[in-house]
């Protein structure tokens, strides 16, 4: 096994690991203290293990998820901390009650979106390969359904927010649209019926219908 191990460097730590290991696993195997930039350990949904990767012989540095990227010989890796903008966006979804106002509310909260320079930084930053810039463009054009779709698999790693020169915060813009659409338009009929039954007391739970004998 160890003969097949590959050597790489993670956050300055020389690491040797089997080629099937992910970056996160390799770092842990090497004895490195794993107390941040770690979360779901392989599912690729928490975004915490965002990192910069430079492969042997390449000039390019790519943005990836450490739990999903297998190690390679000569790889160099640096984790990137969660980026918290100094002045975060602010909105109150509860105050948005009129669905006619969605676009105005979006403009008010994310005024920078209109200034997108189409530099593609967000697309290059996205470790999930989403069409982030396109999503912003859809939002600006008012095609909220298309924008919503673009951000469906967004894991909120915040790398596009870090990258954007215009401080657009694309992932938060996408999430705003998704939230606003759900909150203002999702009204399943059977849920509404069921809530009425529970709230007017016609539907309750009788706990005496089952006996306590353990099976």
């Amino acid at each position: 096994m160890s003969d097949d191990n590959v050597s790489l460097v993670i956050d300055g730590r020389a690491v040797s690991a089997p080629p099937t290991a992910s970056i996160i696993q390799a770092f842990s195997l090497s004895g490195g203290a794993l107390v941040s930039n770690v979360g779901c350990m392989g599912q690729g949904v928490c975004g915490s293990c965002r990192c910069m990767v430079r492969r042997d012989g390449s000039r390019d540095v790519t943005m990836e998820l450490g739990c999903e990227t297998p190690v390679e010989a000569g790889m160099q890796v640096a984790f990137v901390s969660y980026f918290q903008p100094k002045r975060p966006h602010v909105y109150d979804l509860e105050a948005l009650t009129d669905s006619w106002q969605i676009l105005d509310a979006m403009d008010e909260t994310f005024p920078q979106a209109k200034s997108c320079r189409h530099c593609g930084g967000c697309d290059r930053a996205c470790p999930r390969g989403l069409d982030v810039q396109k999503g912003v463009e859809y939002a600006v054009l008012g095609d909220v359904q298309a924008a919503r779709e673009v951000f469906t698999e967004c894991i909120m790693c915040n790398l596009c927010t870090l990258a954007c020169p215009e401080r657009i915060r694309p992932n938060h813009l996408g999430l705003f649209i998704r939230r606003a659409l759900a909150a203002l338009t999702l009204r399943p009929q059977e849920l509404m019926r069921r809530l009425r039954q529970i709230e007017n007391g016609t539907l309750t739970v009788d706990t005496s219908t089952v006996d306590d004998t353990r099976s």
Partner: peptide, 17 residues
């Protein structure tokens, strides 16, 4: 750093942190 090259933006951010 402008951000169109994410590694530059992320890299300077991480260095600064």
């Amino acid at each position: 750093s402008c951000g169109q090259c994410p590694p530059c933006k992320s890299g300077t951010y991480q260095l600064s942190r």
